[in-house]
Amino acid sequence: MTTTEAGPDDPEAATRQTVRGKGRSKGRGSVRSGQVAALRPGYQAELADGTDRFFEPRRTDCPWCGSLRLRHRLRTTDLLQHKPGVFVLDECQDCAHVFQNPRLTGPGLEFYYRDFYDGLGEQRLGGVFGTRTAAYRDRARSVLPFAAAPGRWLDVGTGHGHFCESARELFPGTSFDGLDLSEGAELAERHGRLRRGFRGSFPELAPQLAGQYDVLSMFHYLEHSTEPARELAAARQALRPGGLLLIDVPDPQCRSARLLGRWWLPWLQPQHLHLMPVANLRRRLGELGFTVVLEQHGEPHDPVDLLAACWLLLDAFAPREDAPWLPGEPPGRLRRALRGALFVAGAPVLLLATLLDRLIARFAGRAGLSNAYRLLARRD
């Protein structure tokens, strides 16, 4: 699994970049067509036996609290890449934890992440990485009242390290390290965005990082992890006593999630495996020896819910773009023209949705419409 700073970390940026990608140049389109053709035989061979092997057996208990009282919250498909498969989110009726059930296996995660942030997807998302400086600074600014000059900061799920590059403007004396499963952390170190870039699993690397950090951040990272409790325990191990843990995650209890249903972008199936209500995360942090010193809802809200829902609806009804995992022949000129015409016709709706998103953002936190929440906790 690859955790980067576009897509799950930046849903608005990723969605806007995807929309802009519809107008790419002919030359760029022909390059993509060649890549799709080269990848098609491998994908089709991989899918010849179906997708059942990509899923674990369905579990009958809640992975957060162990309750047996589960109910289906959502059933959906891959609305972004349109890779085959049906994904179910269950909700615990006791603690309200939402989780993918059945969950993807390791090969399943590899299959569905492939060509989303790298390969074919990198063409569309690659330009996003350095464009979110204001959001990155806002995240870092939430630490200032509690640690004006931390010595060392570890950003887990750092991607290409752009958050750390922006945060350094507020904390010029802080040494920023980053950790990621992808090679992005190593690339960020070579480009000078990180003092040190670690590549690998955080729970496995945590023992060698024990007690080294004053601040540790996880931005839209926990929802991608197979075992969030292990990640939180690793964070406690890597922090010094009195160190701060900063977490941003989607809020499955926000009103937008219920109003928009499967078209709410932060469900992000099949990538998001766990979505934790804020009360659950606060309680777990307390059990691990943390004290929550800050809870925010309006500030981490990303004003993209309506735009993303409208775009996903248009995309669902439009003829498919060419992709190596889709069956049949590549789309011809007529299908491509119909797809373009549909998005042109839908442009006023997308513009209106964008304006409404910005209007809602002014009171999203107070109205329970914020699509994310932020917790800052101190290790006791």
Rank of each mutant, 00 (worst) to 15 (best):
G173N: 14
G159N: 10
A185M: 01
S175K: 03
L125A: 01
G178H: 07
F163G: 05
A185P: 08
H162T: 10
D180G: 15
H160N: 09
R137V: 09
R137N: 01
A167G: 04
A140I: 01
S166A: 15
S175I: 02
S182A: 14
T133Q: 14
L170E: 06
G161H: 07
F146L: 11
V156G: 07
D138S: 12
F129Q: 01
G161Y: 08
E165V: 00
A135L: 09
A135C: 02
A134C: 03
L125T: 02
A149I: 00
V128D: 06
H160P: 05
G159H: 08
G130M: 11
G126D: 02
L154D: 13
V143N: 11
G184E: 05
F129Y: 15
G127V: 12
A147E: 12
P150D: 09
S142Q: 12
V143M: 13
A134L: 12
G130S: 14
R137T: 04
L144A: 07
A167Q: 04
G157P: 13
G161T: 07
E183I: 08
H160K: 03
F129W: 14
D138A: 15
F129P: 00
V128R: 04
R168T: 06
V156W: 07
A140H: 00
E165Y: 02
A148N: 03
E183F: 08
P150M: 03
G173K: 10
T131P: 01
W153L: 09
V143Y: 07
S182I: 03
F129I: 05
L125G: 02
T174P: 03
G173H: 11
R152F: 07
P145R: 06
E165S: 14
R141D: 13
W153N: 02
A135S: 11
R139N: 11
L170N: 05
V156P: 10
H160I: 06
L187M: 09
R132V: 06
R168G: 12
A149F: 00
G178E: 03
R152A: 14
G161W: 05
V156M: 03
F129N: 00
T133D: 13
G159S: 06
P150T: 05
R137W: 01
R141M: 12
H162K: 02
G151Y: 00
T174Y: 01
C164W: 00
L170R: 02
D138T: 09
S175P: 00
G173Q: 14
A149C: 09
G184K: 04
T133V: 13
G157S: 08
A148H: 11
D138I: 01
E183M: 07
